[in-house]
Amino acid sequence: MLIRNTYTKLIGTIILCIGMVVILFLSSERQIHRNNAFTRRFPPHPVTKEFDLDIGYNSYYIAGFDKNYLYLGNQTAPWHMLQVNLGTKDTVHIRLEPRDRKIQYRSLRTSVLPPYFFVMDGTMPFILRGKINEWKADPWMERTAYFNRAIPIDSNRVFIRTINANNQKTTLGIIKKTDSFQVHLDTSLLESQLDGVFDVDGMLVNSENNQTLGYVYYYRNQFITFDSELTGQKKQRTIDTVQYAQLQVALANKKGQIQMKAPPLTINTSAVLSKELMLIQSDRLGRNESREMLDQAIIIDAYNYQKKTYEFSFYLYHIQKHKVREFTLHGNLVIALIDNKVSVYRTLEPYFTNYIPDKAQKITTGR
């Protein structure tokens, strides 16, 4: 009888502990996704769905635009690109060819900036450049600068994120080609809170006219913008209230590699920069927002970085439980990649009226 009571108490204790762990886990999950300190504004229909286009595979990413054409790079087939006519919905498969067929690479990324396209690998490092419609990639930069992110901003300049060899901190810079290569790093742009690497992790963004560049931190409620020479810096807070990165960094292993002890609290997930708007995806729920919405759509918050104001928010909806994995803004369209589909939304006045770049034509989708 005594043994039976002991087993009963032991089982009861185990069940109680498991229950407490589950409750704490669910509570922590709610805290990760919720911040009741801010309230979003959801105006009626700032964007409307135009169409979904099946592109066959979910390995495509947005490489750039040329007027009415969307170009998609491919993660699993790095020398392949897909051209999508946003007006007719016609697609064309493109084979990129390096002049040096023996070139070695680890992680290729293609970017289209008319009249050129760029093929980049910051780990080797090299950048190839070629003309659109010829699709032959010539060496543009070799072994001049390592980088882990890069965005071409004109035919002879590339905006990069790299590790500064002097202090081993994450740094932003510009690779510029004139008669020779110049690499300008600005160590004052990113503000370290912990280690200068993980805590400043974030996204490079640029406006469609490439007059404005930006950086959006993953783990704090802040982004910065500056001109294409990395001057005129402006800082802005998002509507979230987490000002300091909440992460735990482990000690270096035998190989000198440093990793996080636990997943960090992500404030900003992805971002897009237009002429005056910074569009930021956030999975954090504000006051009176339903947790179920994150199973149906992603939330985009729009900020006017010229006025330093929060403007409004809107949803981009998933397709058959497949989540939006990437989005961008082009002219009067919002383009999203969802599984093996391109989703196209039209922006509506007055929310996006002033945010279409001067040289960009309004795009007709032929609906």
Rank of each mutant, 00 (worst) to 15 (best):
N210H: 15
G196W: 07
S192F: 02
F198I: 01
M203T: 13
V183R: 00
D186K: 09
T187P: 09
V205Q: 03
V216Y: 01
T178P: 00
E191A: 04
S192Q: 10
G196I: 07
E208T: 04
G214Y: 09
G202Q: 09
S188Q: 13
Q182E: 12
L190H: 07
L190S: 06
N209H: 08
T212G: 01
Q182G: 03
F198S: 00
V205M: 01
N206T: 14
H184Y: 12
D186F: 12
V183W: 00
Q193L: 07
T178K: 08
V205G: 00
V197Q: 11
E191V: 12
E191C: 01
T187N: 10
Q211P: 03
V197D: 10
V183C: 00
V197M: 09
V205Y: 01
Q211I: 08
L185M: 12
L213K: 04
D201F: 11
M203V: 13
L194K: 08
G196N: 06
N206V: 15
D179Y: 03
T187R: 08
V197R: 14
F181A: 00
G196Y: 04
Q211L: 07
H184G: 07
D199R: 00
D195V: 03
D201E: 10
T212N: 05
E208W: 06
V216G: 02
D201I: 03
V197I: 12
D199E: 00
D195F: 03
D201H: 14
S192H: 01
Q182N: 10
G196Q: 08
E191T: 12
L213G: 02
M203L: 15
Y215N: 05
E208P: 12
Q211D: 12
H184D: 15
V200A: 01
S188F: 05
Q182R: 09
M203H: 15
N206K: 13
N209K: 14
H184Q: 15
D179L: 06
G202N: 10
H184E: 14
G202T: 09
S188R: 10
D186C: 11
Y217Q: 08
T178Y: 00
V197C: 08
